Simulated assay, not measured.
Amino acid sequence: MLPRSFLPALLLALGTSGCAAISALDSASEPLDIYELQTPVIEGAARRGWAELVVEEPIASGALSTDRIMIRPGPLQAQYLPGARWSDETPAMLQTLLVRSISETGAFASVGRAPLGGQGDYALLGELTDFQAESYGTDAPVTVHLRLMLRLVRERDSSVVASRTFEVRQPAADDETASLVPAFDLAARKMVSEILPWAARAGGGA
């Protein structure tokens, strides 16, 4: 049986714990600002291709497979911007950018996430290794760093037609959301703009 003097302290502890749990639930339910990236401006269309291209969602580490906006204060540390997120998980968002952008070039007869029939002509496979802002050390410059390894595979024989790594570094004014999101947008548009002619040439559409 508990001493009478212990009961007030126990009730106070339970009340405090309950308040902390309610506070955590309240913060988890706070709405986050949602951001999405734009496709680059397509300067003229390529010669219309005949092939069907399937763009697979890039594989990525658990730290990148999220809709949170990552910033690294050190090479081995991952943090996320408070109060902000992407419109989709990062690999899926990048897949959408590639599907839309490659489709607009006209270099392929069709571009999608899944083949129209039983199998497409080509598949674009990717591994996303970097999609974050970096600021290593006090007063260090802030840079958005994107790195995507791509392989274009011919479906009928599973042969790799072409492979290349695309990497972009874009300076940002500071580590505030208002500065980082435009820097991410510019970096992504630069990277996708480099991917488009490569994919068109590799797939025989240009």
Rank of each mutant, 00 (worst) to 15 (best):
P31C: 03
S29W: 12
L94I: 12
I71Y: 03
L64W: 06
D175T: 08
S27T: 13
V144I: 11
L12Q: 04
L186S: 11
L97T: 08
V142E: 03
A178K: 15
L2G: 08
T165N: 07
Q79C: 00
L37A: 01
L125G: 11
Q132G: 00
R154T: 08
D130W: 10
W50E: 09
E155A: 14
V55S: 07
A92I: 07
L152I: 00
G203Q: 05
G204N: 05
P31Y: 04
A162W: 03
L37V: 09
Y80E: 03
S61W: 05
L125I: 14
P75I: 10
R164V: 04
P73K: 11
R154P: 02
A107L: 05
Y122D: 02
R147H: 10
T177A: 14
I102Q: 10
L150P: 00
E167I: 06
R4V: 13
P171A: 07
T66E: 02
Q38I: 06
L81S: 03
G18L: 10
P91D: 05
R4N: 13
E155F: 11
G18F: 04
V55A: 00
A9S: 11
G15A: 06
Q132S: 10
W198T: 08
C19P: 01
A188G: 07
T143K: 14
R47I: 15
A188R: 02
G205N: 06
S87I: 13
F131N: 00
S17P: 01
A21L: 12
T129E: 04
Q132F: 09
Q132P: 00
E89N: 13
L10G: 04
G126R: 01
V181M: 02
R85L: 12
S17N: 09
G49K: 01
P73H: 03
P58E: 02
G203V: 00
E194N: 07
R189Q: 15
L124P: 06
L124R: 00
G106A: 06
D139R: 10
V111L: 05
W50C: 07
L32C: 09
E52F: 05
R4E: 15
G44R: 10
I22Y: 09
A202T: 03
A187G: 11
P31T: 04
L180R: 05
F131G: 02
L97N: 07
S65F: 15
L12P: 03
P75G: 04
I195N: 02
K190A: 14
S163D: 12
D139V: 08
T66N: 07
A9Q: 05
V181S: 03
M93G: 14
P171R: 08
M149E: 14
L32A: 10
